[in-house]
Simulated assay, not measured.
Amino acid sequence: MTTARIERLVTSGQFSLDGGTWDVDNNVWLVGDDHEVVVIDAAHDADAIAEAVGDRRLTAIVCTHAHNDHIGAAPALADRTGAVIWLHRDDLPLWRQTHPDREPDAWLRDGLVIEAAGADLTVLHTPGHAPGAVCLHDPGLGAVFTGDTLFQGGPGATGRSFSHFPTLVDSIRDRLFTLPPETRVLTGHGDSTTIGAEAPHLEEWIARGH
């Protein structure tokens, strides 16, 4: 039985891509216990995230994808804590748009397990919203962290560079909707949902995308 728990912090800032900028609120997820923790998506505000970490050891900063609103605070947080920044290599071109002078420290790959205080976060490569987008699934926690791949009410956006709607739908169908229906979907923005709540709408999304 894992002793790990999930904490949510909401940070605010801007998302910029393809010449546009939007104000956004992001979910920053912390998974760990009283001693060590990992951060999923270091968005916007390194100070606020460091405060949420407190005196715990931050072992990893896992980036679900490399849009600037999800990685903006990662280097500052890593420099402050010594944590390793993890990213899927396919998102390196996006990463370099935000951090041209600082590479991630390690590469996520499908099937890799990142441990945090007894939690085992398994990487699911789910391209579509971004080429290197990943989700992180832990059956013990009954949760999947989906970044911007799947939200309450539908898939992530695919109208901008590096994104592709049919690929995203394939990722959701093949990698996420095969998880148990009670699995909590902890998203990059907004409210949480479950696999069971979203799975019945797959055909609608496919129709909408054509």
Rank of each mutant, 00 (worst) to 15 (best):
M1L: 13
T2Y: 01
A4Q: 08
R5A: 09
T11C: 00
F15T: 05
S16W: 02
S16A: 15
D18N: 10
D18V: 03
G20H: 09
W22M: 10
N26E: 04
N27A: 12
V28C: 10
V28N: 05
L30W: 02
L30Y: 01
G32W: 03
G32R: 06
D33C: 10
D33L: 12
H35L: 13
V39R: 06
I40F: 08
A42K: 10
A43T: 01
A43H: 01
H44G: 13
A46T: 03
A48D: 12
A48W: 04
A48H: 10
A50P: 09
A52W: 03
A52T: 06
V53K: 04
L58G: 02
T59E: 13
I61L: 15
I61P: 05
V62D: 02
V62A: 07
A66S: 12
H67N: 14
H67R: 14
I71M: 03
I71V: 14
G72D: 06
G72R: 11
A74L: 13
P75Q: 08
R80D: 03
W86F: 10
L87P: 05
D91H: 10
L94C: 02
W95E: 01
R96V: 10
R96K: 12
R96E: 11
P100T: 10
E103R: 15
E103F: 13
P104H: 00
D110H: 15
D110I: 09
L112R: 10
V113D: 09
E115S: 06
G118E: 11
D120T: 13
V123E: 06
L124E: 03
L124P: 01
T126G: 08
T126Y: 09
P131S: 13
V134D: 05
V134W: 09
H137Q: 01
D138K: 12
P139F: 05
G142N: 06
A143F: 04
V144T: 08
V144F: 04
F145D: 11
T146V: 08
G147P: 13
G147D: 13
D148I: 08
T149Y: 00
T149D: 00
G153S: 10
P155L: 07
S163Q: 12
F165C: 11
P166E: 09
T167C: 06
T167Y: 13
V169Q: 12
S171R: 02
S171W: 00
I172M: 09
R173G: 09
R173T: 14
D174Q: 11
D174K: 05
R175T: 03
F177N: 14
L179H: 04
P181W: 07
E182L: 08
R184H: 12
V185Q: 11
V185P: 03
L186Y: 01
G188H: 05
G188T: 05
H189G: 00
G190D: 01
D191E: 13
S192C: 00
T194N: 07
A199D: 00
H201E: 13
H201L: 15
H201W: 14
L202F: 15
E204I: 02
E204S: 07
I206R: 08
R208S: 06
